[in-house]
């Protein structure tokens, strides 16, 4: 909760330039996560660059290729309730509305959602060992209380999970992240945006220092006919996922022609297994087939002392959510189980 300098940027290039004048600076938009962790003394910015006034990042626009572009500064609420999102990407809408609270969704931006830090108890405790917070300090979660931790893709250095709901849908939808930075613009496929912890758990994603997310592109395919987001947690709202699933299906009669399945709450990034999606192609949408897909998705899953249940829970969630996707009208507030 140190003191910091504050600068309001009017353009993206001005923001990027300002940020790169300091070694410990951060962009601030909604602030819902940054101010939270700053108050917990987990991050110590010397400069905050306010990007809320950047004119280019504030709208949702239709792209020439038929997809949509979400400006990075559009709030989560405005995204979830946007008519084009509700009609063409309802999976994204439902996932956003399953996260946080109405107030936080009114503040948090789409760009910021991608940059949320983990809710790992030990990351949040400035005095506990945590390789993500202080590289090389150790991981208190592996032999600690790890109910909320990863079952997939973890490393001996970090078993934290990425907490976003929105990003689980973005992963399923194969979004693309557009960034600008000191070395110009680039775009990053969603699957490549977040990282697994490996031996560098301090890095949540592949952004370079000083790079700024300007927008997120949604490809044409929105799975608006058959989709479902299911979130399982320790209370019925305003809690992070133990396991969540985003499922989008394209069907020809009963037969799946295209499937997307992404898991949240189980790994350091939204978890997608393309082999499982391939396996479902050409098969009827039945619990048995979703179970086969679940087995592929959960290959190599490893539980710890308090979270082994997630492996079985994720399997059942994948099956249920597959069936829920056949009846998207049954979606319940808070992405609770239905059918």
């Amino acid at each position: 909760m140190n003191s910091f300098a504050f600068l309001r940027a009017e353009t993206a290039s001005e923001a990027v330039k300002a940020l790169n004048t300091k070694a410990q600076a951060a962009f601030i938009a909604g602030g819902t996560n940054l101010i939270d962790i700053w108050k917990y003394n987990l991050t110590h910015p010397e400069l905050l660059v306010d990007i809320n006034r950047l004119a280019d990042c504030r709208a949702i626009i239709e792209k020439a290729d038929g997809g949509l572009r979400l400006g990075a500064l559009v709030t989560n609420a405005d995204t979830a309730y946007h008519p084009l999102i509700e009609s063409r990407y309802p999976l994204l809408s439902k996932a956003i509305l399953a996260g946080a609270s109405a107030q936080i969704r009114n503040m948090a931006t789409d760009g910021g959602n991608l940059l949320q830090r983990t809710r790992c108890y030990y990351f949040y405790d400035a005095n506990a060992p945590c390789n993500k917070r202080v590289s090389g300090s150790g991981c208190a979660a592996i032999n600690g209380y790890n109910r909320i931790h990863a079952i997939l893709g973890a490393s001996e250095h970090c078993i934290a999970v990425f907490p976003s709901d929105m990003c689980v849908a973005l992963a399923a939808l194969a979004a693309v992240v557009n960034v600008t930075g000191p070395n110009g613009d680039r775009n990053i496929a969603f699957a490549d945006f977040h990282r697994l912890p490996g031996d560098q758990p301090e890095r949540d994603n592949n952004l370079q220092y000083g790079e700024l997310i300007t927008s997120i592109d949604l490809p044409v395919k929105g799975f608006e006919q058959n989709y479902s987001y299911l979130k399982l947690r320790d209370r019925q709202s305003y809690a992070f996922a133990l396991v969540s699933v985003a499922t989008g299906l394209e069907l020809d009669g009963d037969v799946i022609t295209e499937a997307r399945i992404a898991l949240g709450g189980v790994a350091h990034k939204p978890w997608r297994a393309k082999e499982a999606e391939e396996l479902l192609k050409g098969k009827p949408a039945t619990p048995e087939n979703f179970a086969k897909a679940a087995a592929v998705i959960l290959q190599g899953a490893k539980g710890y002392k308090h979270n082994s249940f997630k492996i079985e829970l994720a399997k059942r969630a994948i099956i249920r959510n597959g069936m829920m996707a056949l009846h998207p009208q049954s979606q319940r507030p808070g992405a609770q189980p239905s059918l």
Binding site: G31, I35, M107
Partner: peptide, 8 residues
């Protein structure tokens, strides 16, 4: 509606 604690 917003949370006044999470903004400056």
């Amino acid at each position: 509606r917003i949370l006044s604690c999470l903004t400056l």
